[in-house]
Design a protein around this nucleic acid. Structure first.
Length: 943
RNA sequence: AGGCACGUAGCUCAGUGGUAGAGCACUACCUUGACACGGUAGGGGUCGGCGGUUCGAAACCGCCCGUGCCUACCA
């Protein structure tokens, strides 16, 4: 050990008994980033023999540039970081490409709010100045979320950070748009679209949320026949739309209305005759009056009906949701005011025919929350069917694997029923549509660069389309646009296709499916091999986190700690409702301790990926904070024992002869195998669980305890072997845990005396080899079987102590007899260890018959009986305690025995169950019945 | 309306045909030189209900009840 290391080590050993995450996290992230350990190969260095190295790439789901870190990000970041760190340690050339999304509407809204505070609007500034302001804002505060990802430990390659509005990506967007247009897959058309009157833009179907179970009312009113001979009653939940009615439809076979076919109705407010048409598709004669008002410009079904019958489409709305001139007397009113006014006027005119309560679903804008209006508008669309087909095929063929698998169905269902995608948005912030309109002719010029002349007439009076593209259009290109496409860059060549796409299931359609389509279309290759979908993080009650509910848990508060008051203040500032504040007060009265990033990461990893909800429990985080501490102290103990000694971790399991050493290396192999399997199959919960239990239940509970007497013994070879095992197990454990708990493992690993170094700017665990069962463990079933003898014995002795209130300070003597010679040999060989763990002295009894009537041979003895072994502890018995203890034990075994006997008495079971299962039951029966007999004998001996 | 999940200990969750598990909470004891953010021992479950398949079901199938999400429709 160098002087520096030595000094560091003793400094560390005298350090805190509890793990303090704060400094450790700050120190190591800075160091890692400085040294560039997260960077993928750049092509100009050959530090780690990149030519031969396989690549492993993850494209980050880019968070909104406006955003700040929430639990969803924390979850994404942790999962991806674990995957990428694991592969990096396996020697892959890993690229985790970070970046942010320009988030059209969200960002524009944020900046507009800022302007409102300044007393101005984007319209006052004008488009160019406004966009400048957005960029300025982005430069000032857009980096916050990326800084927060660093707090989580995200090992992204920051040298390749991207933003969806970067010129590089803008070029890709133009290229993609132009190609799709030239291929006829992008078209401009007039359609009924979803209009958000608040933000005044069109929305795609996916951006519309359905609010279910809304209590509304159905209003009936009559249209008078033109000839004055009667009326026709229709129903509506949106009375104002009658101003756009251009027909009333009845079912062709409906006898009630047969006499009205071909007649006309007089519109009460506008000078228009409304024809009565027959339509079997639109009309259900059983529903309502069996007559349906048709408003082609404001309802999807009516729109289709209008197309079938060649009806006039009358748009009655302005873009802000007020009624236009078509509204006649109601022109200029807001849509909801007009609704009331129309109803009232119809009542006055005597056309109202009553209202009924009606439960309905309201379409609301995901962004503004306002009720979306269907409106006819000319927009840009992507033709989806031809793109969807190959995207379906790659999942069917397994070229892309979706995990958990149940999402396949959802993916297929959506793609098989896909609608064309409306990609234009009436916003200012976003990618401009590369289409130009000519003042002199009808031609639209779509081009990569601003065209000099109209491609139709050659005219030069061109005006660019004022709309921008849906944010998801640029996101769909993310896996290759970030690597330089359409140029054939080295990075694109080397890192595309990526391997894993990890994200929340909520954006499977929005993003994942579209990336698959675009990747296949433009790259002719899938954008990733696996899609890993995780659940959504909710509060402890399973409710979605929302600012209003006040149940948002900020990952940074969990990492750094926060007082109850601070939590409430923050929630109130964010606009929490009173009930939300109450919930917060009740659930987290004392706020959070500082749990550290590693604990938060482990907690998020501990949830099964197939659960859709991750109901984050602070108690669980606390549990993993405790685990951090356990690991910290296990390392402190080990390092203390190794301090000043020669032992060095070699990166390979040392040869071991002692049972304890053989056993822990075997358990290490099992744990590493489980970790590797879990990490490989996206069962990060299994992987982290396996290591957690290895560290706590095996390393700490048993091995460290066993190592104490071993290290203090006088057999020099044994001491050396144990030191070698201890230092190796510590080293390998830290490396195994590093992808999950990067900070604490680095801090500890730096103090582990090692005989190997990791190449690079400094020797870091980030680049250390991931441990494997073959190299770092040694499976040893014999050692495990022998160890079971020891642990059964120790546990039984401890139970006896506990039940007889025998404090550890009181030494006891244990007389034992094993049925099998092999068992006896193990206990004789490990006698010192067992004595140390049980604070007892052992005495073997060769004659098993002594235990047939223990009372006769051991004075006042308590007994324990484990499979194949009996033991007596004389001089301690409290007859009553012993009786109740043995009775309880007897009951337990008898119950087990009864179950087994019932099974074996069943002829069908014996005849049909697999032989091995039957044999196992037989074995259990003989074991149980032997123990029952022995416990009974012991009870009888008590008198 | 259809689809997809989910319902396991007081709480949060694993477990997918062969002995019901973890963490937290709970009870008792223990301040032992790694760790009280700890240790040892213990209590606690008719696996939502009812049927079926099977030698055997928490798991597979059907129905029902409850919860959540998604898609569609809603004159």
């Amino acid at each position: 050990m160098s002087d520096e290391q030595q000094a560091q080590a003793s400094n560390f050993l005298s350090s805190s008994k509890a793990y303090e995450s704060h400094e450790v996290e700050a120190k190591w992230y800075a160091r890692w980033e400085e040294a560039g350990v997260f960077e993928a190969s750049h092509g100009d260095t050959d530090l780690r023999g990149e030519a031969e190295r396989e690549t492993y790439t993850i494209a980050i789901p880019p968070p909104n540039v406006t955003g700040s870190l929430h639990m969803g990000h924390a979850c994404r970041t942790t999962f991806e970081d674990v995957l990428i760190r694991h592969q990096r340690m396996h020697g892959k050339d890993t690229l985790w490409l970070p970046g942010t999304d320009h988030a059209g509407i969200a960002t524009q809204v944020v900046v507009e709010r800022m302007l409102a505070r300044e007393g101005t609007t984007r319209h006052d500034l004008g488009r160019e100045v406004f966009i400048e302001r957005v960029w300025q804002w982005k430069e000032e505060s857009g980096g916050r979320i990326l800084a927060q990802l660093r707090r989580m430990g995200a090992s992204c390659d920051w040298t390749r950070e991207r933003f969806t509005m970067d010129e590089m990506l803008a070029r890709a967007v133009r290229e993609a748009f132009v190609r799709l247009y030239e291929e006829g897959l992008i078209y401009r058309g007039s359609r009924l679209v979803n209009w958000d009157v608040a933000t005044q833009t069109v929305l795609s179907d996916l951006e519309v949320e359905q609010e279910e179970g809304v209590e509304g009312e159905m209003f009936d009113f009559a249209y008078a026949l033109e000839d004055g001979d009667g009326e026709l009653v229709v129903s509506t939940t949106r009375p104002e739309t009658m101003l756009g009615d251009t027909a009333v439809a009845v079912h062709p076979d409906d006898a009630r209305y047969a006499h009205l076919h071909g007649k006309k109705l007089r519109h009460p407010f506008v000078d228009r005759l409304v024809p009565i048409i027959t339509d079997a598709e639109l009309v259900d004669p059983e529903f309502g009056t069996g007559a349906v008002k048709v408003t082609p410009a404001h309802d999807p079904n009516d729109f289709a009906t209008g197309k079938r019958h060649g009806l006039e489409e009358i748009n009655i709305l302005e873009l802000d949701g007020t009624l236009n001139a078509e509204g006649g007397p109601f022109a200029g009113m807001d849509r909801f005011d007009a609704r009331k006014a129309v109803k009232q006027k119809l009542e006055e005119l005597g056309f109202a025919r009553g209202t009924k309560k009606h439960t309905m679903t309201l379409p609301r804008s995901q962004r503004s929350g306002t009720v979306v209006e269907p409106m006819i508008s000319t927009q840009w669309f992507v033709k989806m069917e031809p793109l969807a087909k190959p995207a379906i095929e790659v999942v069917e063929s397994g070229e892309i694997q979706i995990l958990p698998e149940e999402w396949n169905k959802t993916y297929f269902h959506w793609l098989r029923n896909i609608q064309d995608w409306c990609i234009s948005r009436q916003l200012w912030w976003g990618h401009a549509i590369p289409a130009w309109y000519c003042a002199d002719c009808e031609e639209v010029t779509v081009a990569r660069e601003t065209p000099a002349a109209c491609k139709g007439c050659g005219g030069t009076k061109l005006r660019q389309d004022e709309d921008v593209l849906d944010t998801w259009f640029s996101s769909a290109l993310w896996p290759f646009s970030t690597l330089g496409w359409p140029d054939k860059t080295r990075d694109l060549e080397r890192f595309y296709p990526t391997q894993d796409m990890e994200t929340g299931y909520d954006i499977l359609f929005f993003w994942v499916a579209r990336m698959v389509m675009m990747g296949l279309h433009f790259m002719d290759e899938v954008p990733f091999k696996r899609v890993l979908l995780a659940g959504l993080v909710t509060d402890e009650r399973g409710e979605k986190m929302s600012k209003v509910k006040g149940n948002v848990i900020d990952p940074l508060d969990v990492i750094d700690g926060s007082t109850g008051e601070a939590l409430i203040a923050k929630a109130e500032k964010a606009g929490a409702a009173k009930s939300g504040v109450r919930y917060l007060k009740k659930t987290y009265p004392d706020g959070f301790m500082s749990y550290g990033a590693d604990a938060l990461r482990m907690t998020l990893l501990s949830y099964s990926p197939q659960s859709k909800r991750i109901a984050l429990s602070i108690k669980r985080i606390e549990g993993y904070r405790n685990f951090s501490n356990k690991l910290w102290n296990a390392a402190r103990f080990s390092l203390m024992k190794l301090d000043g000694e020669e032992a060095r971790a070699t990166g390979e399991a040392p040869a071991a002869t002692a049972l304890a050493n053989r056993w822990i290396l075997s358990r290490m192999a099992v744990a590493l195998e489980a970790a590797e399997t879990g990490l490989g199959s996206y069962r990060l919960d299994d992987a982290s669980q396996a290591l957690y239990h290895f560290v706590w239940d095996e390393l700490c509970d048993w091995y460290l305890e066993l190592s104490k007497p071993l290290l203090e013994g006088d057999d020099a070879a044994l001491v050396a072997e144990t030191r070698a095992t201890l230092v190796h197990v510590l080293d390998a454990t830290l490396r195994a845990l590093h992808p999950m708990m990067p900070f604490i493992t680095e801090e500890l690993w730096q103090h582990v005396p090692k005989a190997y170094e990791v190449e690079g700017d400094f020797s870091t665990i980030v680049l250390a080899p991931y441990p494997t069962a073959a190299k770092d463990g040694r499976l040893d079933t014999e050692a495990e079987a022998s160890f079971r003898v020891v642990s059964d014995f120790v546990k039984a002795a401890r139970t006896l102590r506990a039940e007889h209130d025998l404090p550890r300070s009181r030494p006891i003597e244990i007389h034992w007899h094993a049925d099998q010679a092999a068992t006896a040999e193990v206990l004789l060989a490990e006698q010192k260890l067992v004595e140390a763990l049980t604070q007892s002295s052992l005495k073997r009894e060769e004659d098993g018959s002594l235990f047939d009537d223990p009372a006769a041979h051991f004075e006042d003895a308590a007994l324990f009986i484990v499979p194949g072994l009996r033991a007596a502890v004389p001089g301690v018995v409290d007859v009553e305690k012993e009786r109740s203890r043995l009775t309880r034990e007897l009951k337990k075994i008898e119950k087990d025995l009864a179950t087994v006997e019932k099974k074996l008495a069943n002829e069908s079971f014996v005849a049909r169950a697999p032989e091995a299962v039957v044999a196992q039951e037989h074995e259990r029966r003989s074991d149980f019945s032997a123990r029952v007999e022995r416990v009974r004998a012991a009870l009888e001996g008590l008198g």
